[in-house]
Amino acid sequence: MLGFISSRIIQALAVMLAMSMLVFLGVFAIGNPIDVMLAPDATQDIRAQAIAFYGFDRPIWEQYLRFLGRLLQGDLGSSFVYNIPVMQLILSRLPATLELTLIAVISATLIGVPLGMYAGYRPDAPLSRFIMAFSVLGFSVPTFWIGLVLILTFAVTLGWLPAGGRGETATVFGLEWSFLTADGWKFLLLPALNLALFKLSMMIRLARSGTREIMLSDTVKFARAAGISEWGVLRHHVLRLILVPIVTVFGLEFGSTLAFAVVTETIFSWPGLGKLIIESIGSLDRPVMVAYLVLVALLFITINLLVDLAYAALDPRIRRGRNA
Results as ranks from 00 to 15, higher is better:
residue 47 R to K: 14
residue 299 L to E: 08
residue 225 A to Q: 14
residue 185 W to P: 05
residue 99 E to G: 01
residue 299 L to G: 04
residue 72 L to V: 00
residue 212 R to T: 09
residue 315 D to S: 05
residue 322 R to E: 12
residue 280 S to M: 11
residue 85 P to W: 03
residue 23 V to C: 06
residue 47 R to Q: 14
residue 150 L to H: 06
residue 250 F to G: 01
residue 82 Y to V: 07
residue 61 W to M: 13
residue 94 L to F: 15
residue 198 F to L: 10
residue 98 L to D: 02
residue 253 E to F: 12
residue 272 G to W: 13
residue 66 R to C: 02
residue 296 V to L: 13
residue 238 V to D: 10
residue 46 I to R: 11
residue 297 A to M: 12
residue 248 T to D: 00
residue 203 M to S: 00
residue 2 L to W: 01
residue 245 P to L: 06
residue 188 L to N: 07
residue 313 A to N: 08
residue 176 E to A: 14
residue 244 V to E: 02
residue 240 R to P: 04
residue 150 L to I: 03
residue 247 V to H: 01
residue 50 A to Y: 12
residue 249 V to K: 01
residue 276 L to S: 05
residue 286 R to W: 14
residue 301 I to F: 02
residue 254 F to Y: 10
residue 214 I to M: 11
residue 42 A to S: 15
residue 134 F to G: 05
residue 168 E to G: 02
residue 256 S to M: 12
residue 97 T to M: 08
residue 321 G to P: 07
residue 141 V to Y: 02
residue 120 G to D: 10
residue 299 L to D: 05
residue 164 G to H: 11
residue 309 L to Y: 02
residue 29 A to P: 04
residue 205 R to S: 03
residue 87 M to D: 09
residue 61 W to G: 11
residue 265 E to T: 04
residue 77 G to A: 10
residue 96 A to K: 09
residue 84 I to N: 01
residue 63 Q to E: 07
residue 156 V to A: 09
residue 192 A to W: 08
residue 190 L to P: 05
residue 6 S to P: 00
residue 75 D to E: 03
residue 87 M to A: 13
residue 209 S to P: 03
residue 156 V to Y: 07
residue 261 A to C: 13
residue 273 L to T: 04
residue 286 R to F: 15
residue 211 T to H: 03
residue 86 V to M: 04
residue 290 V to K: 04
residue 295 L to I: 11
residue 311 Y to T: 05
residue 180 L to F: 13
residue 316 P to C: 08
residue 192 A to H: 08
residue 225 A to C: 14
residue 176 E to R: 09
residue 167 G to N: 11
residue 36 V to Q: 12
residue 190 L to K: 04
residue 18 A to G: 14
residue 83 N to M: 13
residue 131 I to S: 07
residue 30 I to G: 11
residue 201 S to I: 00
residue 296 V to F: 12
residue 95 P to V: 03
residue 272 G to L: 14
residue 256 S to P: 02
residue 247 V to T: 01
residue 280 S to A: 15
residue 217 S to W: 08
residue 274 G to C: 06
residue 306 L to E: 03
residue 35 D to A: 12
residue 116 G to I: 00
residue 196 A to Y: 08
residue 287 P to C: 13
residue 202 M to K: 00
residue 49 Q to K: 10
residue 210 G to N: 02
residue 113 V to M: 07
residue 11 Q to G: 05
residue 273 L to H: 07
residue 250 F to M: 06
residue 93 R to M: 14
residue 131 I to T: 00
residue 15 V to C: 10
residue 288 V to S: 14
residue 40 P to N: 11
residue 175 L to N: 09
residue 282 G to L: 13
residue 132 M to Q: 10
residue 225 A to W: 12
residue 147 G to W: 08
residue 68 L to Y: 03
residue 125 A to K: 01
residue 290 V to H: 04
residue 308 D to F: 02
residue 17 L to K: 02
residue 20 S to Y: 11
residue 108 A to M: 12
residue 132 M to W: 02
residue 247 V to C: 04
residue 122 R to A: 14
residue 185 W to N: 06
residue 283 S to R: 15
residue 20 S to G: 13
residue 13 L to G: 05
residue 275 K to E: 07
residue 2 L to I: 00
residue 21 M to N: 03
residue 57 D to Q: 11
residue 98 L to F: 11
